[in-house]
Amino acid sequence: MIKAKYQGVLDLGEQLNIQNGDVSEKDGVLQVKGTAATQYDKNLIWDKIKEIGGDEPADIMADIKVEDESVYARHTVSSGETLGKIAKQYYGDAMKYKEIFAANTDILKNPDVIHPDQELVIPNL
């Protein structure tokens, strides 16, 4: 029953390719463990948990570790994206594009020129 309630969290974990995942139920509490690739992925999992169970759900306990703490996320550029749009997605602030540009000067020479399929580092702020 409790697993069905949080199926959206489990589906998201699968979609994000959470490693070493383990799900069990004990005394009416769903226990979820795993390792996310980045902090951003971990945040997505927690946001989904809160969306379903509220800000402090008592019926789920999640232990999500982060594999790569050196970056906030990694992003593959899609057609039509700009650094501003990408910054808005990850930080909620398009002006943070400068931080993304600074973290990727090895592949970017101009903040106004990015190309599909480039993999950008989204830095921790």
Rank of each mutant, 00 (worst) to 15 (best):
I64T: 00
T76W: 02
D106I: 05
S70R: 09
I86E: 08
M95W: 08
A87Q: 12
T82I: 01
K98E: 12
M61G: 05
T76Y: 00
V113K: 11
A87W: 02
S70D: 06
S70F: 03
D117C: 06
P111A: 13
K96E: 12
V71W: 03
D68S: 03
H75Q: 13
L83G: 05
K88C: 01
H75F: 09
D68A: 02
L120H: 12
I86P: 08
I107Y: 02
Q118D: 10
E67K: 15
F101M: 07
H115L: 15
M61P: 00
G84T: 02
H75R: 04
H75E: 04
D63R: 08
H115S: 14
I64G: 00
T105I: 09
D93N: 15
A103D: 12
D106W: 07
G80M: 11
K109S: 09
P111I: 12
V71C: 05
G80N: 08
D106E: 15
A102K: 12
G92C: 09
A94G: 07
V113Q: 04
I60V: 14
N110Q: 03
V66I: 13
K88M: 13
M95K: 15
E81Q: 11
E69D: 13
K109V: 01
V77P: 11
A103N: 13
K85T: 10
I100D: 04
G84F: 05
Y90P: 00
V71I: 10
I107T: 14
E67W: 01
I107S: 05
L83Q: 03
T82G: 14
D117T: 10
K85M: 13
K98P: 08
L120C: 11
A62N: 00
D63K: 10
P116A: 10
M95N: 12
D117E: 14
I100M: 05
K88E: 15
Q89W: 10
D63T: 14
I114K: 07
Y97H: 11
D63P: 05
K98T: 11
A103Y: 11
N110E: 00
I100F: 06
I107C: 01
V66E: 07
Y91W: 13
E69Q: 12
I60Y: 03
I100C: 04
I86N: 13
S78C: 07
K98N: 12
S79G: 02
V77Y: 10
S79P: 00
K85D: 14
E69T: 14
A73D: 04
L120R: 06
S79W: 04
A102Y: 08
I100N: 02
E99S: 13
Y97F: 15
I107H: 00
F101A: 06
A87C: 08
D63S: 13
N104D: 08
Y72I: 00
A87H: 11
I107M: 09
I64F: 03
T76Q: 15
M95F: 10
E119F: 01
E67P: 01
V71N: 07
D106S: 11
E81I: 03
D68P: 02
I60G: 05
H115W: 07
E119M: 15
